[in-house]
Design a binder for these strands. Structure first.
Lengths: 252, 252
DNA sequence: GATTTTGTTTGACATTATAAAACAACGTTC
DNA sequence: GAACGTTGTTTTATAATGTCAAACAAAATC
């Protein structure tokens, strides 16, 4: 498998541009690449033809082209969490029969952006677009727990602990201890804290920056799923969130 | 100026991927490009070496690589003063407790495009999107002073000096002397000229063309910040604007 | 206006990319 | 389970192509 020299060189030229180096003269490039001007010139012109390089009208200096932005955005779209996660939610539900959700953080609430309904159970509460509290749901907890301390602090500033069931966490102290437990475990659980008779588990999904991008959850009816089954579901859930995170470019 | 065939082909391969075509098999590429598999293979491997192409571990299919995202973001950053400046505003406010602003010129007024509020003071006037006069504010002055004489002349043509406080500059002569003072200093000050009890300092941010792209300011309450503290803030401000300008590609 | 420093073009040569064929690794089909 | 189509990858010879040097042109600097 031969490496194409000219292509290799062209891509190396693109790498000369960084945060601090916006523009380069052709001679600078040729000296830094240790190539002759004419060689660099040909490479640049070809790159320019495709919009990967642009030339400043007056100074004649070269800079990165808009095509890179275009392609980058294309990639970003593809990384769209929802479309990536969808097949994993579906596979999970297919395999377990349990309802799965995908939730992102918006303001101080979670928002359902996807849901795959299982046959066994009908979870009422959730619906795509609907909002869910951070303190009473597994997804909310997962979305909160795996952030930087200052971000968590910001979320909890003036946070109101609306009571959903008799088991809902209703104050900051209790929530903070719950969050640290979640951090240790790597996943969050909501045991009838949001909806009576319903128990959920949720785990974080990380993006390529290592930020929590979303949370995936599985919702079960207490009447249908016992403790051992539930912990098996958690194991499976953690597997899924890990692979999804990887697909988003997350490297631990 | 010869076009480099291999590079040209490689870039054409990248163009095969679009919104709908995320993954391609090597044979699909070779048929669509009308090239032999081995040729495509070499090109792909070289692209992959630089992260412009990735290969799916199990399916063996090829897709666009993260490097494109990285380069695209690089470009985006450069285009967006606000996102670049944001962390600097935040850092400044974090360090000093004072409110900072980012303002750009629009017509004959400034427009707040970002604001980071300090705990110590509550500056009423500013709000993102709100407009501010050139003659009565530090940011306005800074946006004006560091332009070419003919540009300044154009701005001041038919300019109306709206009175904001008893200290507001109200005529062209006074404004011009103020501007030349600012040019000498490298920064602008507004001492209760826009809002009673409030004193601000502002400095210009330059883009890669050497043009004034924005102004950054720090706003203080006279009751809270004395002269020595204020001049320290100015020093810090100038440091920040200098680094931001560099990030935008400015080379003096 | 002369001189240096740029970016661009030209053309000959040898390096390098290319294509064909052979190979290997899977899947599928009978 | 063997034979056949698919794949992706490697090898190798050939000639097409990228490369360099030198010449040219156009700015910029003195």
């Amino acid at each position: 498998m031969p490496i194409i020299q000219s292509l290799d060189r062209a891509l190396n030229i693109l790498d000369l541009f960084d945060e601090y180096t916006t523009e380069l003269k052709i001679t600078e490039i040729s000296t830094r690449m240790d190539l002759h001007k004419s060689t660099v010139h040909s490479l640049l012109k070809t790159l320019q033809l495709h919009g990967y390089i642009e030339q400043d009208a007056e100074s004649g200096k070269y800079r990165l082209g808009m095509r890179l932005l275009e392609k980058g955005q294309l990639l970003l779209q593809r990384l769209d969490i929802r479309s990536i996660a969808r097949k994993h939610l579906a596979a999970f539900t297919d395999q377990t029969g349990q309802t799965t959700h995908l939730v992102i953080l918006d303001g101080k609430e979670g928002v359902y952006i996807d849901k795959v309904e299982g046959q066994k159970a009908a979870i009422r509460y959730s619906r795509i677009g609907r909002r869910v509290p951070l303190h009473s749901s597994a997804v909310g907890k997962a979305l909160t727990a795996f952030r930087k301390p200052e971000e968590i602090e910001l979320l909890l500033k003036n946070y109101s602990y609306i009571v959903q069931t008799s088991l809902t966490i209703t104050n900051k102290e209790a929530f903070l201890t719950e969050l640290s437990k979640i951090q240790r475990q790597g996943y969050a659980v909501d045991d009838q804290e949001n909806e009576p008779g319903v128990r959920c588990a949720a785990a974080p999904i990380y993006d390529h920056n290592g930020q929590v991008a979303a949370a995936m959850s599985v919702s079960t009816l207490l009447s249908a799923v016992d403790d051992t089954q539930f912990s098996q579901l958690i194991d499976l859930l953690l597997q899924e969130t890990e692979t999804i995170s990887k697909l988003l470019g997350y490297r631990p």
